[in-house]
């Protein structure tokens, strides 16, 4: 009984709850949960194309969720993955529009630029916290809005493609496009939006997992998050750790922005993220801030995101119901204590 309760209190319970709530949301919309779930699952897992789309959404959530996990593990509430994602995409898109060269050069450079863009955005919050003890919660939130204004201004002005009608950069040259997901047996993904970016995301998770468990840096980062005062006394330079952790966290989210630009949009515009950076917080928490479980959680949320559209189209349940469910999952999961103390944090 106790074991059952513990499992229910954890991520598994959250997922179960998600389905119950989804059923409620469908009932409110006057749709039989059977039809609703049918549409949700056939739209996300029912065939090659839906699965590919689910994996595209998984990837889009996975990068920012990994970034959020890293910051949370360091005891820093990075709520700015949305802005960091946008800045990563902006950097990649701005340069990618004019960068001609072989794919093996262009793609890595664009992804790296994404990390730089997101890293700068996270780093600003880190610097403000390290230097001025300014709450990273508020600064990352403010930076989300500032990123949106900045990107909106740039794509409507200096970076606007003269050929496009809307506000967006010129398209990337095809050499900057991420290759399609490799063909498995007779299964080809060439006609879907699925690219190798899902593999890059999973590799990133593996690297982060290695950093957390095997390296001295990861040890110090976790110490800083678990017990800030003990960490400080163990010789860790806390302001430096704050700066590095938030910059790295932003870089991982920014990499995700670049992956969307090079893999899906092939250009940059501010519609790059319909709120992936916020949903990513839910993903990170469901994944217990553990990179490998975050991958699993991202897949679960990928199903919701991809299936939500199908549910709206085929069963008439507004896709925004999905976001209500995500929020409720966060609320429930928050009942677990992630941090020993926040007494030493910046004023919020």
């Amino acid at each position: 009984m106790k074991v059952v309760l513990r499992v229910l209190a954890g991520p598994a319970g959250a997922l179960l709850l998600a389905f119950v709530l989804a059923a409620v949301a469908m009932l409110i919309a006057g749709v039989s949960p059977l039809d609703g779930f049918g549409a949700l699952f056939s739209g996300s897992l029912g065939g090659r194309r839906p699965i590919a789309e689910t994996l595209v959404q998984t990837t889009a959530l996975l990068f920012p969720a990994l970034g959020v996990s890293l910051a949370f593990r360091a005891g820093l509430f990075n709520i700015g993955a949305e802005g960091q994602l946008l800045m990563g995409g902006l950097f990649a898109g701005a340069v990618g529009a004019h960068f001609a060269g072989p794919g093996w050069l262009v793609i890595p450079v664009l992804l790296l630029l994404g990390m730089v863009g997101g890293g700068i955005w996270g780093g600003i919050a880190g610097w403000l916290r390290a230097r001025f003890n300014a709450s990273e919660i508020i600064s990352t939130l403010m930076l989300n809005f500032i990123a949106l204004s900045l990107a909106g201004y740039l794509v409507a002005g200096p970076l606007k493609s003269p050929l496009a009608s809307g506000a967006e950069t010129a398209p990337l040259l095809p050499s900057g496009w991420l290759p399609a997901f490799p063909t498995i047996g007779s299964l080809s993904f060439g006609d879907t939006r699925l690219t190798i970016s899902i593999l890059i995301a999973i590799a990133t998770a593996a690297v982060l997992s290695f950093i957390f468990t095997r390296t001295v840096f990861g040890y110090e980062l976790r110490a800083a998050g678990e017990a800030p005062e003990a960490a400080r006394r163990s010789g860790i330079n806390m302001p430096r750790m704050t700066l590095i952790a938030l910059a790295l966290s932003g870089a991982v989210a920014g990499l995700g922005g670049a992956a969307i630009v090079t893999g899906v949009l092939h250009r940059f515009n501010t519609a790059l993220s319909p709120g992936y950076g916020y949903t990513a917080i839910a993903v990170a928490l469901v994944g217990d801030l553990n990179p490998l479980w975050v991958c699993v959680a991202a897949f679960g949320f990928g199903i919701l995101e991809a299936g939500g559209l199908a549910m709206q189209a085929n069963a008439g349940v507004p896709k925004d119901a999905i976001h209500v469910i995500e929020g409720l999952i966060v609320l429930v999961l928050a009942a677990r204590r992630y941090f020993a103390t926040r007494a030493t944090g910046a004023p919020v």
């Binding site: 110090e220 678990e226 003990a230 163990s234």
Partner: peptide, 21 residues
Amino acid sequence: HHEGLVLNWSIVENAILGRQN
């Protein structure tokens, strides 16, 4: 509790706190 140990960590992890480098 606050200055010496990371309570959620194992004895192994705590044994090297401050000595990690």
